[in-house]
Amino acid sequence: MADIFRALDDETRRLILDELFARDGQTLFEICSVLTMRHEVASSRQAISQHLAVLEAAGLVTTERRGRSKFHYFNPGPLAEIANRWPASERASA
């Protein structure tokens, strides 16, 4: 679970998840384009690639090859672990 918090503790990585949440299945090129043009993120392609590797290691992003290209997908699964550990509704009703 520490990996999830570390992965989320970065604004660029949160923006990457925002963009994948808005449109799932993007190449590195597309992610870099929208970060630069919509969010004025000035990071290099290599830096974004490293951010994606951190997200993938935490299980928040999965990749799939289609044809000769690699596409990135948002995986909300690990976030459920946070809610399961500290369920908001249970405490509210207690």
């Binding site: 449109r23 993007q26 190449t27 090129f29 597309e30 384009s33 929208v34 043009m37 919509r38 044809g67 000769r68 290209s69 596409f71």
Partner: peptide
């Protein structure tokens, strides 16, 4: 034609990326 990126609004322009079937995007 296969697109690796559908039409996307990037603010100043709309862009899309296609596979030219000859090895290039």
């Amino acid at each position: 034609v296969q697109f690796t990126q559908p039409p996307t609004d990037i603010g100043t322009a709309l862009v899309a990326v296609l596979d030219d079937t000859c090895g290039n995007l």
